[in-house]
Computed example of a mutant assay.
Amino acid sequence: MMRQKATVIGFSAILMWALLALMTIGSTPVPPFLLNALCFGIGGTIGLIWIGLGAGFGVLRQIPWKVYAFGTIGLFGYHALYFTAFRIAPFAETGLIAYLWPLFIVLFSGFLPGERLRTMHVIGALVAFAGAGLIVMSRDSASAASIPALGLALAFLCALAWAAYSVLSRRLGHVPTESVVVYCLLTAALSIPTHLALEETQWPQGTLGWLSVAGLGLGPVGAAFFTWDIGMKKGDIQLLGVASYAAPLLSTLALIAAGLAEAKPVLLLAALLVTLGAALAARASLTSKLRHAD
């Protein structure tokens, strides 16, 4: 698969994640780990149909169990850390720290064989992070002094976990994306006992609630992980890392369009910073490609 095509496919995951907040609100009052089980169960089931109609289930038997363990720890571990962090410290600062993962992806990518991390990649990631920070911090005015340190620490581990999962996926470029189906199903399976141990069962409310859960399972907590896998394994990993900062911007715009958030002037500055950061990263990638061609 061409690098450019894989990058576009990977970016589709970012577009789907932009709908995560909107659909999660629609799924209220379903608790996080039950929502995890439902959504990953839907995504994994759709994936099984995809495999059955395509490569066939024999492809799954060729994948080592260590790969399945890695993927499941990545998906389940990230969500467990994320949900726990926001239970302890449900503030904008927590979200900002958790959203360090695109920057970490850009930085960690420099250790991958065949990848060239340029200064402009890092600058672009920092500029885009500033834009995302404006969006996240404008949502909550809570005093930093009131935020539990444990919540912030878990948010930081959450960012490291997702960045590590994403970058290490590049080292598994020979592993077919069909493996993500098993990651999803095992994550759903692990979420069930976690839910029963920690949460009170509350099902989706009405048609909107169930449609929101179905939408999450089909998109942001389903197909997005398949397209992200392709982007991380075959696409421009630095550009995708920086472009990921478009997710909180697009997410906020979706909430505004649905009447669930207020449009603020800071959004314009945030949009400019995110766009500028992505443009800088794209320029660095193009320069690297041209020099490599020479």
Rank of each mutant, 00 (worst) to 15 (best):
G217N: 09
A214W: 05
T194E: 01
G206F: 12
T207A: 12
S212K: 03
L186Y: 02
L208P: 01
L172Y: 01
L168M: 14
L216H: 09
T194N: 00
S179N: 03
E200D: 15
A189R: 11
G209R: 14
L172W: 04
T201V: 14
L216P: 01
A189Y: 14
G217I: 01
I192C: 07
V180E: 09
G217C: 02
A214Q: 02
T187E: 04
L168E: 12
L185I: 11
L190C: 08
T187C: 10
T201D: 05
G217Y: 10
L211N: 00
H174F: 02
W210E: 00
V175C: 05
L196D: 09
P193Q: 01
S212W: 03
V213K: 04
L190F: 08
E200F: 11
P204G: 03
Q202E: 14
S169Q: 09
L198H: 09
L218W: 09
G215M: 11
A188L: 09
G217W: 03
P176V: 03
C184K: 03
G217F: 06
R170K: 15
G173I: 11
P204N: 04
A197S: 13
G215S: 05
S212Q: 04
Y183V: 10
E200G: 10
H195Q: 08
G173E: 10
P204V: 11
E200H: 11
Y183M: 13
A188C: 02
L168D: 00
L216T: 12
T207S: 12
R170F: 00
G209M: 01
Q202T: 15
L198C: 03
R170G: 15
R171G: 07
P176C: 04
P176A: 08
R170W: 11
T201P: 02
E199Y: 11
Q205I: 03
L208W: 13
L208I: 07
G173S: 11
S179E: 02
L172E: 02
P204H: 04
E199T: 02
A197F: 14
L168R: 14
C184W: 05
